[in-house]
């Protein structure tokens, strides 16, 4: 089964990397008011179903993939 975890800096958390990207886009002439930089983690895993996969990935996020103090996660499980 394939799944994707999107990890983003939480709202309100200072994201200096995103600010640098936004400034650089501005220099290139793009009218971008905000850029936030996160992380994409593509996973392939064995699971009996989508719900079980999601539950497992939630544990992965809690134990390693994200730090809940500063990051939010969005889990997408490919059901096909």
């Amino acid at each position: 089964m394939k799944a994707t975890v999107l990890v983003r800096p939480k709202q309100g958390i200072l994201d200096p990397q995103g600010d640098a990207v936004q400034h650089s886009l501005h220099k290139l002439g793009f009218d971008v008011s905000t850029a936030r930089v996160g992380r994409v983690i593509d996973l392939e895993l064995e699971a009996p179903g989508v719900d079980e996969a999601r539950a497992t990935i939630e544990r992965m996020c809690a134990e390693l993939l994200a730090n809940p103090l500063i990051e939010s996660v969005e889990i997408q499980v490919d059901g096909s």
């Binding site: 200072l14 200096p16 103090l69 500063i70």
Partner: peptide, 15 residues
């Protein structure tokens, strides 16, 4: 990260 201490270290504000 081991949760033995509170908080987290983030990229320097000035990058």
């Amino acid at each position: 990260e081991a949760r033995l201490l509170p908080g987290v270290l983030r990229p320097n504000r000035q990058l």
